[in-house]
Each structure stands twice: as structure tokens, then as C-alpha cells.
Amino acid sequence: MATVQVVRSEWTKIRSVASTVWTLSLAVVVTIALGMLISALARSEFDRMSTQDRITFDPTFISFAGMSLGQLAMIVFGVLVVSNEYSTGMIRTSLAAVPQRGTFLFAKLAVATVLGLVVSMATSFAAFFLGQAMLGEHRASLGDDGVLRAVIGGGLYMTLIAVFSMGVATMLRSPMLSLGILVPFFFLISSILGYVDATKDVVRFLPDHAGSRIMQVVPPVGDDTPYGPWGGLGIMVLWVLAALVGGYVLLKRRDA
């Protein structure tokens, strides 16, 4: 079984269903538009901010504000890429064609990851430039310290969110179950627990918290995060690897 053949096949699969187009377009549009809106709001509020807020004002991070919602579309993209196979019964046809389940999973995830990466990078750069345009005189430039890292990091973050979702969906198979776990995980648990002192230290190590550190250029005052931008991304990568390994092990063992 040549892996190249399977990769070609997975590319045909992913480009021939509508869900790929609408989830990715939604991710692009929401991330950029919401980022621009919040950047424009920040600009008009800037004069009314406290001195401290002005010192720690992070124009780069502000322009990525749309990712909080845009990542939802990336989660749906990641979940559907995998769980479509199960909800439609296609998985049996697919595994009869490619009985090497490791090759099958690798090819599927590789294609979806590369596509996700291209879209995420483009989105991150667009969100940055358009966000900065909204920020007017408070804008950052790509040449400033740490900014390029943050913009590239934004693209990696969005991609990793999608890959994490693919791993979880491989474990859970059902699209509804996967979304029912991932969406609250990222939108409720992670943000609510982040405000509670007792759980704050745990939440820091959740994938979205740790991963989004890379998009910050100016850390907040009194920031005592125990990892840096790349360390945070590393933690997120570990989460993603765990989800992928879990998915692979279950796929290998289970009846299709």
C-alpha cells in the first residue's frame, strides 16, 4: 500500500465534500472579521484606558481576538473530517480499500492538517494586518520584537486546535459526541475555570490556554505563567499527540 496513493485519495475525499469548504470559510471569515471589530473598538477606547492597560496594550494579541470564536469552526472542521467516515458508513468502504489503519489515519490527518495549516496561516496573517489597520496609530508592525513569532504562532494554534479535534473524533467516532465534548471543553470549562483561583493553575495547562500564549507579544502585568510562548505551544502539541495516539490505538483495535 503506497502511502502516496492514500494521500491522493484523502485529498479527493476532503475536497469533494461541502463541509470542508463551509467550515474553513467560516473559520477565516469569523476570525478576521471579529478581530477587526475588536481592534476597531480597542482603538476608540484607548484614550479612556487606565495607564496600566495602556502599558500592557498588546495590539498583536488584540487582532487575534476573533480566534476565540473562529476556533469553533476549526473544531467542527477537524471533527467532521474524521467522523464523517463513521456517520455515513464510509469507514467500512475506506478500510476495505486501505486495511492498513495506521496508513489510513496518517494520510487522512496529514491531508487535513496541511490544508488546515495553509488556511490558518493565511487567516492569521490576514487577521494581523487587517487588525493593525483598524488599530491606527496604536498598531504593531511585523518587524517589532516577537510579532512575527506571534503571527506564525496564531496559524499554528488554529491548526493544532483542528488536529486535536481530529484525534478526539477518531477516538469517539460520533460527530455529535465529539462536538458535545470539545465545544464545552474549549468554551465553558476552560474559560470559567480560568477565573477561579483554585483551578487557575490547572487551566494554564489546558491546550487552548497554553497554546494561545504564543500569540501574546506583551505579557499582562504580574504575569507568572510558568512557560514561555514556545513552551506553551509545546504543551498544546503534547495534548494533540495524546489525542492522536489515543485515536490510533482505538482505531487499530476496534471493529470498523
Binding site: 503506497a2 496513493q5 485519495s9 484523502e10 475525499k13 463541509s19 455515513t88 458508513g89 468502504t93 475506506s94
Partner: peptide
């Protein structure tokens, strides 16, 4: 059981299977 994605055309369904097996 039906083993095809309902949103994919017949041609693309068969094409992806053909490609996977050269």
C-alpha cells in the same frame, strides 16, 4: 449498510477509492 458519503458525487466516491489502490 450504505458505504458512501451522501454529500460526495458518485464519480468522486469512486475516484477516491480508485486512487487509494492505484
Amino acid at each position: 449498510a450504505k458505504g458512501a458519503h451522501p454529500g460526495r458525487s458518485a464519480r468522486n466516491h469512486l475516484l477516491c477509492l480508485a486512487q487509494s489502490n492505484g
